[in-house]
Structure formats: structure tokens, C-alpha cells
């Protein structure tokens, strides 16, 4: 892995972020809709029309997708680690999970703020929201196991990462017809997005993908340094330098 990869992706992410912010606030229309009333067609307030608040969408959804991507990378890497016992897989899994915790925190926080704006509640115990919270708690559990469970914690944590990855498709599809949260697929917010909003959304997606890659690469480098520290300590113990 090139030492310039992380700075390059970070730079691309910074440029993309500036462009995305400009597009979100100057180039995308406000979101609103009209609904038939008993006697009139009226401007739909509430979840029908979010106006300026809809701009949270451009951060919330890319972060959620990066969360799913990070959990997927962590799950696949953990399977690789459990089958091959190669520590490089474990480094990637650890890095991905920690990045997933950060992206998941942003997803949950921006989602709560959006829910307050759209539904009038900070939190509703719907299926997708509850499962997303459980996923995030599982990822936090992974980091706790890695921190406190010692050497055997690597395999326990790897199993947790695989478990978390299995949950992602359920979270994505688990939206009922009566739920407040938008449905996935062709009925979802992304598929039904206004054409004028799509450039900002995809710009945001690319930006956060660059940001995700920069963070994962940096964290993998840290994990390798941690491994190097452990190896040097073992050498020091063998040489009698360390006690």
C-alpha cells in the first residue's frame, strides 16, 4: 500500500466535500411536495415537505452506505482472518470496524436530527432504526473485545464482525409499508430522488467514499504499527532489554 494513498484520498475527499457543500446549498432545490386535501391540493407539511431540512439527506444517506460498506469489508476480512489466520486480514477488519463506528455514529446522529425535523420525534423504535442501533452497538462491542479480551479477542471479534455483516441486508430491506422511514429499492429516497438533487447526492457519495478509504488506510497503517510494537517488545523480552 502506497504511503501516499491515504493523503491522496483525504485530499480528494476535502476537494469533494467543498464541491458537495457548494452543490447542496446553491445548486439543489428545496424539497417539497403537494398532497390532495379533502377540498384542495395543499402544500404537504411534515414528512411530505422538508424544504431546507432535506439537505441532511446528502450527509445521512452516504454515511449510512459507507457504514454498510465498512461492515461488509470488516466481515469479509474477518472471514479471511478466521480461515487463513493471516494478521493482515485482521488489520483491515479492525480498521474497517473502527471507521464503521465513526460512520455509524454520524448516521445515527444525523438520522435522529432528521427524524426530529421530519416526524417531530428524535427516535422511533422502528425496525430499521432499532436494527441500525443494534448494529452500531455490535461494532462498539467489537472494539471493546479488541481492547480488553487479549490475544484470544481477535477471533471472538472476527466472529462478531461476520455476525454484524449478516445483519446489514436485513437493515437495508427491513422497512415496512407503515414505517416512517423511507423504503429501500425502487421506493426508496435515492431511487425517487429529484433529478436536480442527484448530482449533489452522487458527489457526496464519492466524497465520503474517498474519506472512508483515507480513514481505513490510515487505520490499517496504525494497526500495522501496533503489530510492529508487539514484535519489537517480544524481541526486547527475548534480548533481556525489557522486563
Amino acid at each position: 500500500m502506497s504511503r501516499y494513498a491515504a493523503p491522496l484520498f483525504a485530499l480528494l475527499g476535502a476537494i469533494g466535500f467543498a464541491v458537495t457543500i457548494w452543490m447542496i446549498f446553491t445548486d439543489t432545490p428545496l424539497q417539497f411536495s403537494w398532497q390532495p386535501n379533502e377540498r384542495h391540493v395543499v402544500l404537504a407539511t411534515g414528512s411530505g415537505s422538508l424544504f431546507f431540512n432535506q439537505k441532511i439527506f446528502f450527509w445521512h444517506v452516504p454515511h449510512a452506505i459507507m457504514l454498510f460498506l465498512a461492515v461488509g469489508v470488516a466481515g469479509v476480512s474477518s472471514i479471511g482472518f478466521l480461515t487463513k489466520r493471516n494478521p493482515k486480514w485482521d488489520d483491515v477488519a479492525l480498521a474497517s470496524v473502527e471507521v464503521a463506528v465513526a460512520f455509524g455514529a454520524v448516521t445515527l446522529l444525523t438520522g435522529m436530527i432528521w427524524a426530529k425535523a421530519a416526524w417531530g420525534h428524535w427516535w422511533i423504535w422502528e425496525k430499521r432504526l432499532t436494527m441500525s442501533l443494534l448494529l452500531w452497538m455490535t461494532l462498539v462491542g467489537y472494539t471493546i473485545v479488541r481492547r480488553f479480551a487479549g490475544a484470544s479477542g481477535e477471533r471472538i471479534a472476527a466472529a462478531m464482525a461476520v455476525f454484524a455483516m449478516i445483519g446489514v441486508p436485513f437493515i437495508y430491506t427491513m422497512v415496512g409499508a407503515g414505517d416512517n422511514h423511507p423504503q429501500a429499492g425502487s421506493e426508496g429516497n435515492v431511487a425517487t430522488l429529484n433529478a436536480d438533487m442527484r448530482p449533489a447526492f452522487w458527489s457526496s457519495m464519492v466524497t465520503f467514499l474517498c474519506w472512508f478509504l483515507a480513514l481505513v488506510i490510515t487505520r490499517v497503517q496504525s494497526a500495522r504499527m501496533q503489530r510492529e510494537v508487539r514484535e519489537l517488545r517480544e524481541k526486547g523480552l527475548d534480548a533481556g532489554v525489557l522486563e
Binding site: L30, T45, S49, L50, F51, F52, N53, I56, W59, I113
Partner: peptide, 17 residues
């Protein structure tokens, strides 16, 4: 509509978060 349209509090909160 005016309240929601003028209300930038939530977007600012999400941005800060």
C-alpha cells in the same frame, strides 16, 4: 411551510454532529 423552510437549526445540528 414558512417555519420549516426558514428553520435551519436541524441542518446546522447535523452538520456540527
Amino acid at each position: 411551510q414558512a417555519d420549516v423552510a426558514k428553520n435551519k437549526k436541524h441542518v446546522l445540528m447535523a452538520y456540527i454532529a
